[in-house]
Every structure is written in C-alpha cells, then in structure tokens.
C-alpha cells in the first residue's frame, strides 16, 4: 500500500499563491461574504502563512510557508471524532466524510495545525464561480467540517484510469492540484513507502523539517528549509 506524502521546498517557493487558488477552485471551496471574512471564516484548505522572520536588519525576511493539512500519520483529529467522520485511510490520507460529520468541531479544536475549516453558512456563491465547479468534488453542505484530502478524487480517477488501461498506478498519475500548478515546482508529491521515490529522497535531505515535530503527530507533509542567503 502506498503512503502518500509531500515535500515543499521553501528555497523554490516564491509565495505566488497559485497553490492557494488552485486548491480553492479544484475543491469548490466556498467563497465567503465580506461579513463572514471579517469574522475570520475564510475557507482555505491551503494557505500561505508567515511562520517567522529570519535574518538581521536590514535584510529581514519573512519565512512564509504554504501550509495545508500535514496528513499526520498519527492524527490527533481522528482520535476525537465521535462518529468516524474523519479517519486515516490505509494509504495515509486523512479523509473527511462529509455526509457522516455531525459538525461538533472537536477535530478542529484538536488540530494543532489549524487546517480544518467549518461550513458556518451555505453562502450564495457568485454565478461565475458556480459554473466552474469541479464536477469530481462534492460541494459541502452547511454545518460540516472539511479539510485538505490530498485531492483524493484525483487518486480515485487515477486508479480508475490505471485499471482501465490494465496497469499499475504510476507515480505521475496522481498529484494534488497544489503540487500540479506550482510554477516553480516547489512541491514534490509521491509515495513515502517507496524508498526510490523523489519524495522519499527529499525526506532524507538535510534541509528537511516538519511543523511541530515535538507533538509526535508524524506529519507526511514536510518542508525543506530555504538555503542560506
């Protein structure tokens, strides 16, 4: 069984935000109204966040990382779900089952990475946005928690395509939208169980770091430090 993981090279990332937009349009995330946005209810599965600043004056630079669900190998969110609406799949993806979720938001409270979002409203979406919905992904109902799924619908489609062509799933068949669109190829996505995959090699890179390693959540999304200036 594959175990999917992702490496993000901060040396390559130039914070253009294409991954953020790609995630938004690929997964039909709701566009929230101004009022909701002011309350802090913007829906993003992926966002760019300023982690800290590095360097000395005058060359102070923000360390900005694209942050998404890190797909913990030992996810705190699945532990507390009362109805198994969020669970870890065999291939390592932490999935969220929207028709199952009761909306208690316990998983959000227990996520140390704050990457889950809640459908506070079912807001009216702009017509032009609705027309461009990705037909492979459900539009979530109000009152459920949602999260990054590593574009699991793409995995399903890739598996189906491979089965139709009577072959095994290749590494390049399945790639999440954020990794696909990145102009500077900062994302490397692949199978962590396969020691020869590109992402496994990067996992052994000296620049590798993961967010909040001390919590022991074993994230499968990891970062590569920017090389020194």
């Amino acid at each position: 069984m594959a175990k999917y993981g992702m490496a993000i090279d901060l040396n390559k990332c130039n914070q253009c935000g294409a991954c953020v937009t790609a995630c938004k349009v690929e997964n039909n995330l709701q566009i929230v109204s101004k009022e909701s946005a002011a309350k802090g209810r913007v829906m993003q599965w992926m966002r760019l966040t300023n982690l800290s600043y590095e360097g000395n004056d005058p060359d102070v630079r923000p360390v900005t990382i694209p942050s998404l669900c890190v797909q913990c190998d030992d996810p705190p969110c699945t532990k507390v779900c009362p109805v198994r609406a969020t669970y870890k799949r065999d291939d390592g993806i932490v999935a969220q089952i929207y028709p199952q979720c009761i909306g208690c938001r316990y998983c959000m409270a227990n996520c140390p990475y704050n990457v889950k979002v809640f459908n506070w409203f079912k807001e009216d979406q702009p017509v032009e946005y609705e027309k461009c919905y990705n037909k492979d992904v459900a539009v979530r109902m109000k009152g459920v928690v949602e999260k990054c799924t590593f574009c699991i619908h793409r995995l399903q489609k890739a598996k189906e395509q491979a089965a139709a062509e009577h072959r095994k799933l290749n590494e390049e068949d399945y790639i999440p939208a954020c990794a696909q669109v990145c102009p500077s190829h900062a994302f490397t996505f692949g199978d962590l169980d396969d020691p020869n995959s590109a992402v496994s090699k990067l996992k052994r890179d000296y620049r590798k770091f993961v967010l909040q390693e001390e919590l022991g959540t074993l994230p499968k999304v990891f970062y590569l430090n920017a090389k020194s200036m």
Partner: peptide
Amino acid sequence: LGRPDRIMHIFERGRLQSPL
C-alpha cells in the same frame, strides 16, 4: 452541533475512543 439532524450517528456509529 453543525448538523443536529445527524445526532443519531452518535448512537449508530459512535466511536467509544472519543471523549465526547
């Protein structure tokens, strides 16, 4: 709850591991 209509899920497929 966001979906109080699904409260029965707790009884049908509740997970005893959850503190809730």
